[in-house]
C-alpha cells in the first residue's frame, strides 16, 4: 500500500466511516460515492456515517499460511462480520483463543497495527475485532 492511499482511507480504517444513501437508506462499508441500488437518484445524497463497530461473526477461517508480513501471527482468525448497522466486512479477530471464535459470536472493533512498510517505513493502523467485552453484549 502506498502512503497516499493509506492516508486517503484513514477515516474508514480508523473510525469505520461508511456511507448512507439519502434516497433508500442503505448503509455501505467501505463508503461508496453512488448507491448501488438507487444509482443516479443517490447522486448528491450520499452521507458519511460512523458505524458502531459492533456486530456478529457470520463466518470465519483460521489462517495457518499467512501472507507476507503476517507470518509471525499464525494461526489467527479472519472473520466475516455483520455489523449491527447493516454492512458486512472482513477483519481479523484478536485477543481470544481460536476455539472461542464461533459463528454468531458478538464482536466489537478495536484499533490495532495492521501492517508496516518495513522497519523504517510507515505503520498502518486500522480496525480489527475482538470478542465483545460484557459492556457490549
Amino acid at each position: 500500500m502506498t502512503v497516499p492511499r493509506f492516508w486517503r482511507e484513514i477515516p474508514q480504517r480508523y473510525n469505520l466511516i461508511g456511507s448512507k444513501c439519502g434516497s433508500c437508506g442503505t448503509v455501505d462499508f467501505p463508503p461508496r460515492t453512488i448507491c448501488p441500488h438507487c444509482r443516479r437518484k443517490s447522486i448528491g445524497k450520499m452521507e458519511d456515517i460512523k458505524l458502531s463497530g459492533k456486530g456478529e461473526i457470520v463466518s470465519y477461517s483460521i489462517v495457518r499460511e499467512a501472507p507476507e508480513g503476517f507470518e509471525i501471527q499464525v494461526p489467527y482468525a479472519m472473520a466475516l462480520i455483520k455489523l449491527d448497522d447493516g454492512p458486512t466486512l472482513t477483519a481479523q479477530i484478536v485477543d481470544c483463543e481460536l476455539e472461542e471464535v464461533k459463528i454468531g459470536a458478538r464482536v466489537e472493533a478495536v484499533f490495532r497495527r495492521i501492517q508496516e512498510e518495513s522497519k523504517s517505513g510507515v505503520i498502518y493502523y486500522g480496525y480489527k475485532f475482538q470478542l465483545a467485552m460484557p459492556q457490549v453484549k
Binding site: 484478536v94 484499533f111 490495532r112 497495527r113 505503520i123 493502523y125
Partner: peptide
C-alpha cells in the same frame, strides 16, 4: 503488548 499493539493503539483504546 500483542503483535499488533503499541503506544498508539493502547492510547486509542484508553481514550475511547
Amino acid at each position: 503488548p500483542g503483535f499488533d499493539e503499541d503506544t498508539a493503539t493502547i492510547s486509542v483504546a484508553a481514550a475511547r
